[in-house]
Amino acid sequence: MFWIRLVGASAALLSALASAHVTLEQPQAAAGSAYKAVFKVGHACAGATATTGITVRLPAGFRGAQPIPKAGWTARVQRAPLAVPYESHGRRITEDVVEVSWRANNADAALPGAFYDEFTVRGTLPASEGALWFKVLQSCDVGEADWAEVPASGTSTEGLKAPAARLLLGPAPAAVHVH
């Protein structure tokens, strides 16, 4: 009886992993706040045995992105000119990070398909409320999974085969004066 339950539980877990995708640890945040985007990776691409790279395309308005390094992986950023420059700490910012990527330095550092890990980038969120979509390209030892689908309207990812990671921005907390 124990083995039947174990096999059934294993099948349910594998089924859940097969339908999983790259998601955010904290799917809601206050507009205009600092935010640590923790991307959760729970499996390799279909038919693959390991994840070898993660590339996050940052949504417009996500400012000052900084990746958190991972041992055994090389982090890189891609910068581009901004359509609308902004001020930060008294400086005019005319270009910013638009993409962050991590690549396993070798096969031993790759994320095995049956394991879970996180990839993190911090930055500042736009001041307006609504949904932000982080498109994530997952590279594997065999193939890729492009988690980049965004609904035509609304914020529901139901029915999408490869949804982008969604962050819902709510109202900024009221300013508090502390002595």
Rank of each mutant, 00 (worst) to 15 (best):
L125A: 11
L125I: 12
L125V: 11
L125W: 10
A127D: 14
A127L: 14
A127H: 15
S128I: 12
S128A: 12
G130L: 13
A131D: 14
L132H: 10
L132R: 15
L132S: 15
L132I: 11
W133P: 08
W133Q: 07
F134C: 05
V136A: 05
V136P: 04
L137I: 13
L137D: 12
Q138T: 05
S139P: 10
S139M: 14
C140W: 13
C140S: 09
C140I: 13
D141S: 01
V142M: 09
V142C: 10
G143I: 01
E144L: 13
E144G: 11
E144H: 12
A145G: 11
A145K: 10
A145H: 06
A145L: 07
A145Q: 14
D146L: 12
D146S: 14
D146F: 12
W147C: 01
W147D: 00
W147P: 05
A148E: 08
E149H: 05
E149S: 01
E149P: 02
V150I: 13
V150R: 07
V150K: 03
P151E: 04
A152D: 09
A152M: 02
A152Y: 02
A152R: 07
S153I: 04
G154W: 03
T155R: 02
S156T: 07
S156L: 05
T157M: 04
E158Y: 03
E158K: 06
E158S: 01
E158R: 01
E158G: 03
G159Y: 04
G159I: 05
L160S: 00
L160F: 02
